[in-house]
Every structure is written in C-alpha cells, then in structure tokens.
C-alpha cells in the first residue's frame, strides 16, 4: 500500500533534497569540497536578516487573516440555509480559481488609485499613487492580502466540509439547552473543527515561508517596485541564477527546508495533532 507513495517521495522528495545537501558543501564551479564555505557566505549576506524578518511578518499577518477570516466565514456559512450557503461558498471559491501569479497582476491594478475600484478610499487616505499605497500598506500586508484572496476560497470549502461532519444531534441538543447561534458556533462547532484549522495553519505556514512568486512578480509594475531579494527563497534563486553559484543556493535552500521541518514538527507535537481523542 505504501510503496507508490514511497517511490514518489524517494524520487521527487528525498533525491532532490539529498542532491542539494551534497551541492551545498561543494564549490560548484571547480567541483571541490568546500566544507561550510557556502553556508558561511550565505549567513553573512546582509539581506538575510531582512528577508527573514519580511517573511515572518508576512506569515504572521497572513496566518492571522486566514485563521480569523476563514474560521468566521465558515462558521457563518454553516449557520445559513443550505442553498444560499452553497451559492456563497462557490463565490468565495472563485478568486482562488485564479493562480497566484495572475492574482499579483490583478492586484497591481487594484493598488493603483488611478484605476482601482478602491481609488476613492485611497484618495480619502491621502495616498495619491501606487508607490504611496504600497509603502503605506507595507509589502507584508500587500502580499498577505494577495495570498488571502488566492487561498481562502479552497479552505472555506474544506472547513465547511468539516463543519458538515458534526452530527446534527449535538447541535440540536445544544439548542435545546438554550444555546444561541453564536454560542453554538463558538462553544460547540469551533472546538470540533480546530484540527482542520490547525492543519490549514501548518500547511499555510510551510507554504508561506517559501513565498517567492508575489515579490518576484512585483517588478512587473515597474522598476520602482522590483524586490528581487525580499524573501528567503528569492535569495536562493538569486544565488543560483544571478550569481551563478548553485552551491550557495543549495546551502540556502537546505537551511530553509530544515527550518520549515523543525517548525512544523514543533507545531505538530506542540498541538498533539495526531493524538486520538
């Protein structure tokens, strides 16, 4: 039963990781063993701390938006009659059907006061042009909004499914006991689907610290928005494809992977995610 999964994991998961790990100790031009030189080079990069801060700011804002936004929307949808909930759920899902790269392009227009439907809001705040909008909101906020729009719809469907799984007897019993809609949502439903929300948080976290597309594509709005070294993953890309140093790139990617695995394990064991009730 496990073998197809193991084969895929081996060829497309383990093998590239081991290859990168090997590369990270080599000088990839003359093919000699370099020990920790690549790691040293990467850790001394002045952009590293900055990009780590950027990524964590982004992940913090985005995860909060996901947990609060998706939690609230799913619970509200669940309280609606079935038919209207389905219509709404589909409409929430639609923006997620656009790939995240396309969403960036869309947002470049949404952020320009001259063409944005929110132009009057930006003007009311005194933000005259796209550069001011971006610098006032800050890149972490801009990217969080982009990512929220791209991913929330799918998760609303998933959490909606989990809520559907709660037996109607439980809900009816609580109603008989005098709980109102709000109390049912917060005290009964939420504790029963927290595991799905935690799963979403773990997957989104792993996704978030590897962010690449959004900052990379900002350059499409013009040179003044170009941020080729905003995220950690972009740095790895820069090493390989601008400097031509695949060893340094491998070192950065390996460390990024190690960090992601470590933090995910902390969350999994910290929340006793796999413990059966």
């Amino acid at each position: 039963m496990l073998s197809p999964y193991l084969a895929l994991l081996l060829f497309f998961g383990m093998a590239p990781v081991l290859y990168a790990l090997g590369l990270s100790f080599m000088d990839t031009i003359d093919w000699v063993f370099w020990g920790f030189t690549n790691y040293q080079f990467v850790l001394q990069d002045f952009r590293l701390i900055e990009s780590i801060t950027n990524v964590f700011q982004y992940v913090a804002i985005w995860l909060t938006m996901m947990l609060v936004g998706i939690g609230a929307l799913s619970l509200m949808l669940d309280a609606l009659p079935d038919r209207s909930a389905t219509v709404l759920r589909t409409s929430f899902f639609l923006p997620g059907a656009i790939t995240s790269s396309a969403i960036v392009i869309l947002w470049l227009f949404l952020l320009d006061p001259a063409v944005s439907p929110y132009g009057s809001l930006f003007e009311a705040l005194g933000w005259e042009n796209r550069q001011q909008v971006v610098s006032h909101m800050g890149y972490p906020m801009v990217f969080s909004l982009m990512a929220y729009l791209a991913y929330s719809g799918g998760w609303i469907v998933v959490i909606g499914g989990a809520l559907k799984g709660i037996s109607t007897e439980v809900i009816e019993a609580s109603r008989v006991d005098g709980a109102n809609q709000f109390q049912i949502a917060i005290r009964i439903k939420l504790p029963m689907v927290w595991r799905s929300l935690a799963l979403m948080a773990i997957l989104s976290f792993a996704n978030g610290i590897q962010m690449f597309v959004e900052p990379q594509l900002m350059a499409l709005a013009g040179r003044q928005y170009s941020r080729p070294d905003w995220s950690v993953n972009q740095l790895a890309f820069q090493y390989a494809f601008n400097l031509g140093d695949f060893g340094a790139s491998a070192a950065m990617s390996t460390m990024l992977l190690a960090a992601a695995i470590f933090i995910s394990l902390c969350v999994v064991f910290g929340t006793r995610f796999y413990k059966m009730d």
């Binding site: 005259e128 001011q132 013009g222």
Partner: peptide, 12 residues
C-alpha cells in the same frame, strides 16, 4: 510627477 512614466496616471 509622483507617477512612473509607464503608469496609467502618467500616460493620462
């Protein structure tokens, strides 16, 4: 101008 030369506001 506060706009870049290829931005819609500048072109307008």
């Amino acid at each position: 101008s506060p706009h870049g030369p290829f931005e819609p506001s500048f072109v307008t």
